[in-house]
Write a protein that binds this DNA or RNA. Sequence first.
DNA 1: TATTGAAATGTAATCGCTTACATTTGCTAT
DNA 2: ATAGCAAATGTAAGCGATTACATTTCAATA
Lengths: 341, 341
Amino acid sequence: MGLTISDVANSAGVSTATVSRYLNQPHLVSPDRQERIAKTIAELNYVPNNMAKALTTNQTTTIGVIVPDINNVYYPPIVRGIEDYLTECGFVSFLCNTDQNLSREKRYITTLRSQQVAGMIFVGSRPSNPSLSDHLAELRRSLPVLMVNDDMLDGKVSSIGSQEAGGIYQAIKYLHSLGHRNIAFISSSVPLNTYIQKERGFCHAMEHLGLGPAGQWIFRDAKEYEAGGFSAMKKIMELSKAPSAVVAATDQMAVGAVHALLEHGYRMPRDYSVVGYSNSCISSTTYPGITTIDQHGYELGKQAAQMLVQIIHGAEDDLSAHYLDTKLVIRKSSGFCMTGE
Amino acid sequence: MGLTISDVANSAGVSTATVSRYLNQPHLVSPDRQERIAKTIAELNYVPNNMAKALTTNQTTTIGVIVPDINNVYYPPIVRGIEDYLTECGFVSFLCNTDQNLSREKRYITTLRSQQVAGMIFVGSRPSNPSLSDHLAELRRSLPVLMVNDDMLDGKVSSIGSQEAGGIYQAIKYLHSLGHRNIAFISSSVPLNTYIQKERGFCHAMEHLGLGPAGQWIFRDAKEYEAGGFSAMKKIMELSKAPSAVVAATDQMAVGAVHALLEHGYRMPRDYSVVGYSNSCISSTTYPGITTIDQHGYELGKQAAQMLVQIIHGAEDDLSAHYLDTKLVIRKSSGFCMTGE
DNA sequence: TATTGAAATGTAATCGCTTACATTTGCTAT
DNA sequence: ATAGCAAATGTAAGCGATTACATTTCAATA
């Protein structure tokens, strides 16, 4: 505890500079001293003080990871992907939960800046009002920043995400191929870019397939998650012209919808087909398993970390936006349309 | 970017010492200078360099949080609880995933030590071979350390956990009250303390209730999680003397068991009652919802962080082990025993 | 008015490390 | 033998903060 580089230097009978070189550029140290220093370090159980190193070199190997809520099934795979890649590269990550609360986010940014983080990754869709993200564009001017699952600051902050609109399109096309024609979309009125994107994908798909106008089929609830899906589904069931299939903007909403259906005695996929989004763990643990659009969260996180590290190493053509393809995962909540028309 | 305290001092026409005092002990600075310094800091958007502070004061406000896998539904609530409390106290947390891999854990410990963390929290049950945790007892000698959900180093490292044996006892008592007499327990042969504890709770309960000997009713699978529960349940269904209820050591195993039952056409709670452990998100999103033992993960995390902060501030009667009470959460997977005997 | 002491401020050493620059060592080429 | 050079090592300044100690300020008291 509290050993310093000069303790090691003294013990090994060399100068601090030599120890430091051994630690950072071993090839500059003669083999015999390398051995002596190595032995001393092991004996003393010396661990370099990274604070001092950071202070001299003016750079750290810490990254801030800002996430709405690690408790939301959506994020753990992404965070895990980020962490795994960063660890591989010798970085450590600070985890911060904002609950989508702007002032919490700003407070964290200040804290992370004072920690001299080498960069920050913002995970999750952002408010659709772009000015609520101005501070990120500003931040980007002095620090490597990357956004995951939101590209709305295009041209200002690099990002990576999944093809959300495309994923929903995929879902609709799949349902269409099963014979479904009346397809509802469960979204939320919470003003986040992700809902806008997915609704857009829904509208495009419906219109391309000649199932439009799509607007009438979009149901937005003020709540997100299960509760939102549940009450949106209740409204849908009351419609005189009921759809045979429902796509939800998130797996959680899909779960809520499924519960509403089960509660009414409906069965899937006989009476309704339900499709979610993200292939989070809950879509496979529910009964029936929910068909969903896999957004490859873990991979998303890994690539995000990779991009950030590239930016940090200055080896990037700067601003870019990458998109991962989504993949349809078929489970038991969806099937052929049984509504004879 | 890169502003220092002397930039602020110059700008404000005071010495660095005064600025530093303003930042740390404002009452030592006259009101007029406070105002001037505040204004300068705001104008310049100065953020103190915590590396430098850490170096001089020889203490940081960072905590290492070591978790097996943030992607496992068991941990996010705990981590979130930890993070929330730490944030409240002005700390930041490093998140580290070990996958129960000892060398990963040790590597992280070294990294965290070099980051001069003020303390570490180890989340999750540890291997039942106590010598695999010797390094934690050792670590504790030079650093505040706390364990969550494992108390096997009693007397060496403080800990907080849930009453695992008691929780299982609660579950058995509940099933007994519903008329169940033949109750199986799904555990894992992975050598973790948590399984040992829970099996112990199971045996106690069964014997106290006169349902023993309990050993014959314990089914251990080599796998954990859904897969383990699934195959354990398959074996249970093959028994000539089938139980009417099953308790699983984790919610994931319970989910696996439920799937196995559904696959065989059994219905819950008519044919089988199933109970899980931890009240993780999946126990409420499955169908039917799974009766489970709530271990209050979020609260556990909060109190863990609180204990660690106390240890850091030296305000603790040192080594202690706290246990949160568990709570039975009844859902649709359990009910009266329907097996006429 | 001179003295005193508390309050406010400043000066400068220090934390542990890196690194530019200086020095030493040990060859090679003349 | 010796200049010349590369490799290995050492010396010491500096990173941005804190803080012990020194100094200044100024109001209260004699």
